[in-house]
Design a protein around this nucleic acid. Structure first.
Lengths: 239, 239
DNA sequence: ACCTGAACACCGTTCAAGT
DNA sequence: ACCTGAACACCGTTCAAGT
């Protein structure tokens, strides 16, 4: 599936080009000759809305408006708002790159996968608690991803059980790090009086690593390197 | 502050013992001679409700009912539902144990802190996305925690900037792992046809580590050990 | 089968009125 | 100052009616 969250590759001059009902087509009563909605159209617009305006602003009313359709029309395709979010999850998971597992040593592939994973979720952080708890059997795209990743670890000599644990551990770090990218830049702006050592450390951090997204990246890099160094110490380098 | 999420230490025969308005006291009109509500009472009941019934069931109507008060009475104390949740966060953070930083080497203390942190949040996973993004300056309890942790790392020779990055990295892993504890036990129940290697690995995982919470613990242990091994490799053992 | 618009129960928030 | 109850705008979901 082509996810195209930002609509970049299909971007046109008019916003309505991506919408379900062609611009200028007035609403009619009764069943249309050709369906206006589809899972694909709903999912595409869902990702666009969440990415651009955030999760709080994502209501079925907003979704229906963007699709030029009534709210109740959505229920002919999706059973609930939750289902719409699950479709969004599967589409996002489909964008995570597992290609490196075919060519790189397991540790480098795992690091590459973790970065791709975090990037995919950083735009849709409010979905993380929904997705972290979702049974993967309901999400075909996710299932294929796990198969690829675990197979590479098992091939490299990991036991199945420990391979799954390693994947869960990396995933936990990825989810938490994606949440961190959503934190405001001033999250650690504290007065020197209240916490002098911490305030000085935060100032030093900004000197070394910059501000905003750059600091979140630095923490992610440090954590990922440490995590993989620890996993390598257990199972040897993948090279 | 005594948080007492489950109400265990003050548990009595009647549920109303913890509530704001004494049992049997009927509602009167106008201002009461002594205030019925307080930030403390609201926070205590909030934590109890979220822990017992989950975040979805936590509405101001449910909170007010448990406090034997009208919904609008809450607005004399809290500016919004969001503020009630922030109070809950600070109370939770106050239960995280930073004591080990005073006596143990930095790596062991960090591991102990991470475990305490994860346990504190595992019961209130739906708050994690709220809290991961919350400026710490608004939460005095959290601020004291960061001061203690960062001071211990700096004392051990870390630069301030890298100490903060390490804390953020561990925190990210903790948040993600706390989310994982909320996942249903069958989250990885997949058919052998769809993903044979993965299905076998999941079965092996259950043989080795058990089911449900035990598997989440095993993944957390593996990840935390690896993360700390990696951090130690950078900065030497704390012993 | 697939759309519309009205209806429903519920949500967070505001506010005048009471003491 | 701190409570109550009515009112408001909004939310997700259901359903009869239309083609």
């Amino acid at each position: 599936m082509d996810v195209d969250v930002a609509g970049a590759s299909t971007a046109t001059a008019t916003a309505t080009a991506d919408d379900a009902r062609p611009a200028g087509t007035g609403r009619r009563r009764g069943r249309p000759s050709t369906p206006v909605l589809s899972q694909e159209a709903i999912t595409r617009v869902t990702l666009r809305l969440i990415t651009r305006r955030g999760y709080e602003a994502f209501t079925l009313a907003a979704l229906a408006k963007e699709l030029h359709v009534s709210v109740s029309a959505l229920y002919n395709h999706a059973a609930s708002k939750q289902q719409v979010l699950l479709w969004a999850q599967d589409a996002i998971n489909a964008t995570i790159d597992t290609g490196p597992f075919a060519t790189l040593p397991w540790d480098e592939a795992l690091a590459s996968w973790a970065r791709s994973y975090r990037d995919a979720y950083a735009d849709v952080t409010p979905l993380i608690p929904v997705m972290a708890v979702l049974p993967v059997s309901d999400a075909p795209g996710s299932l294929a991803m796990y198969e690829t990743v675990v197979a590479a670890l098992v091939e490299a000599g990991w036991s199945g059980g420990e391979a799954v644990n390693a994947v869960v551990a990396v995933e936990s770090f990825v989810f938490g790090s994606a949440l961190d990218t959503a934190a405001p830049a001033e999250i650690f702006d504290v007065s020197e009086d209240a916490a002098p050592v911490f305030a000085a450390a935060v100032a030093d951090r900004h000197r070394r690593y910059g501000r905003g997204a750059a600091t979140a990246d630095a923490a992610f890099d440090l954590g990922l390197d440490a995590l993989l160094a620890g996993l390598r110490a257990r199972h040897g380098s993948g090279a």
